[in-house]
Nucleic acid binder design. Sequence first.
DNA 1: CGAGCGTAACTTACGTTACGCTCGGTGCGGTAAT
Length: 539
Amino acid sequence: MSLVHDVAARSFGWDPLRPGLAEAVEVLLDGGDVLAVMPTGYGKSAVYQLAGTILDGLTVAVSPLISLQEDQVRAIREAIDVPGAVAINSAEGERAQERDWEALAAGDARFVFLAPEQLANPAIRERLAGLRVTLFAVDEAHCVSAWGHDFRPDYLILGDVIDELAHPPTVALTATGAPPVRAEIAERLHLAHPRVLATGFDRPNLRLEVARHERDSEKRDAVVSQAVRLAGSGLIYAATRRDTELYAEALVAAGSTSAPYHAGLTAAEREDVYERFMAGRARVVPATSAFGMGIDKPDVRFVLHASVTDSLDSYYQEIGRAGRDGEAAEITLHYRPEDFALTRFFSGGEPDAQELAAVFASIAHSPGSSRADIAEHAGMSPRSLGRLLGLLRDARAVSGTDDDLQAAPLDAGQAAARAVAEALLRKRIEHSRSQLMQEYAETARCRRQFLLGYFGEELAELCGNCDTCSSGSAARWMTEHAGAGEQPFPPAARVRHESWGGGVVMHADGDRLTVFFDGEGYKVLSLDAVREGGLLTLV
DNA sequence: CGAGCGTAACTTACGTTACGCTCGGTGCGGTAAT
């Protein structure tokens, strides 16, 4: 038995180890980088836990939520013959933090869990540089792509931090990610030719359905009556906090136990709803996207959406919380076309060119300034400054870490224009992701074939467990759109379009082609039109 | 972008319509007020 399997069995009690996990560990032990895309509950954490146990230095693990960090620390402490773990964050007092650093220095602890905000602090990075970091892990790595741009911009510095630590073997772990998301994660973390390990996305026990509604009241009634009718625990994802409360009220009035969950509740209320849901005392929880990461309840029998999500990546992650026990579960997307307005609003507006120019000028005027200096000088909150800095960095107008900002040789107008262009590019890409969500909602095809195709997986046969298969529409679609003949643009092929530039073929179904263009995002093309117009060439 | 709210306007005395305003999701860390 190999060392990896031995440690897995002896220390953690994983025997056998699931496919892909041992391979990922081996790559890391050989000094390589890994991008692991595996479903929640698969045991992804094993990858860095095992590699970190076997390597003799320190493992830095980045995790987005303090609650997840605590879960991981607990899991490592419960394992046998595994070095200690600490989580350093604002929930701890200064004393406790100091004790943790001492434990790391003494080698009593060899795992340290940090949020990216901690790594934005130069003092923390200095302390890490004084220790021997032999493994870097980024858990929930889709946050790099989903949150890095605006919400938690410190996700964008992780690549520089990894380089600063002399680029130890690095592993990025996530449960969701279509190929463009994976590419973005690898790029932003500066992964070096990572081994990509993606295990099966298919969850055949989930029954997939979509219900389109015309009127808002009709949609609400449909969501509530379905949740009342279905047995067992369930989640309802809604777009606003207010809606989660309205749904909970309606469910309680209809005799179900229910409580809303969103980030506007106090920590104690959130904890309470979470515990009641886990124990089955709150049967249905209407929630915003705040409810999710770290929830591993095996018997969730349904996940309903009362609105669309920003992308199929988010959708897949949210429905994936149903049926972890392998038993049947109901998945229904209830939506109105108007719902897309909100996701587009959330995808952000155009930044203020004058503000961008002012920030750039301020950095150019005093190179080496820190983020705090600039915020003070520009009279801006660190939050909005973070977003502008992210854009300026992406536009390559600003470089350096937050304590040593440098401006590129541009004038402020040029720098601002480039950053605005960057923001518009992002908006186009976000918009295209939301358009594919709409395609999913409106397709006549087998829903599962569509969804898996989005993640780069082909399902040859109709799934037989979705609404379009049941209605016969999926079979008709197959007949009508089959026979496209030889596929000149196979998945993963690099292509160039006359006006949209370079892109990668994501998926080819029948006579339609889904391409992700670097400068535009997703586009769905008709193969006939592509052939006739000669618009697309292989490169 | 669009829902919901309040106020103004219109028409004719209570009720309808129109317009403009505001708000809408994810969490870290640190600071201020209890």
